[in-house]
Amino acid sequence: MRSSTIAATALLALTLVGCSDVEDAAKGAASDAACSVANRTMDEAGTQAKQAVSDLGADPAAAKRELTALRDGLKTLEGQVDGETGGKVTEARKALDRLVTQADAAREGSPVDDQAVEDAQADLDTAIEDFTELC
């Protein structure tokens, strides 16, 4: 009787370890999938921001709309990632905030601060690269 109890306990322990491994694998797969989606979102934000910035002088209202949409998309992503990766999303969103400010100023007829645009674009690119390395 005692040996069957020990055998049953050992079997239960092995089963629980197996469940834990399956659970860990599922969490890992979900995390990988989330990173993949987040990476695509960040890459698209960078690509589309470059296009919007190139249109800043010709159509500042359209550039502002595009940059605002990208910024708002990253705000949503901010709520879904945390830790260091979340910090990189925040950095990218803040860079887009600065680009929106420049687009808004251009839309109102003020000259674009080319240095501010370059700095914000560089910060956005850096945040995206860092995010990609982390995730």
Score class of each variant (00 low, 15 high):
A33C: 05
D59T: 10
L67I: 03
G46I: 08
S54L: 10
T68N: 12
Q48G: 02
N39C: 00
R71E: 10
A30D: 09
L67P: 09
G57L: 05
Q48D: 15
A61T: 14
D43I: 01
K75S: 14
A52C: 00
A30Q: 08
D43R: 10
A63C: 00
T47K: 08
R40T: 11
S54Y: 00
D72L: 06
R71D: 04
L74R: 10
P60T: 00
A34K: 15
L70R: 05
E44L: 12
E78K: 13
V37T: 12
A45E: 07
R40C: 01
D55T: 14
L77K: 08
G57F: 06
E66D: 15
A63D: 12
S31K: 14
D72R: 12
A69I: 11
A38H: 09
K64R: 10
G57D: 10
D43S: 11
G73H: 06
D72Y: 11
R65K: 07
K64C: 04
T41N: 10
E78Y: 04
A49M: 00
S54C: 02
P60M: 04
A58L: 05
A34S: 15
R71K: 14
A33E: 11
C35R: 13
E78I: 00
A63N: 04
E66Q: 13
A62K: 11
G73S: 14
V37P: 04
D59E: 06
T68M: 02
E44R: 08
S36Q: 10
K75R: 15
R65G: 03
K64N: 10
T41D: 11
A61W: 03
G57M: 03
A33Y: 01
V37Y: 09
A61I: 05
E66K: 13
A34M: 11
R71L: 07
A63V: 08
A30W: 00
S36Y: 03
K75D: 15
R71I: 08
A62I: 02
N39R: 13
A33D: 14
A33W: 05
K75Y: 14
V37E: 14
L67F: 08
L67R: 08
A45T: 15
A45D: 05
T47N: 07
A62L: 02
L56P: 06
K75C: 01
L70D: 02
R71C: 07
Q48S: 13
E44Q: 13
S31D: 12
V53S: 08
T68C: 02
E78R: 12
A69L: 09
A63W: 02
G73D: 13
S36C: 01
A58E: 09
K75W: 11
D32H: 03
Q48R: 15
D43M: 06
K50S: 14
A52Q: 04
R65H: 06
E66R: 08
T76M: 12
T47L: 11
L74H: 05
D59C: 02
D59W: 00
A63Y: 03
A61F: 04
L74P: 12
A45Q: 06
L77R: 01
C35V: 08
Q48E: 15
C35W: 14
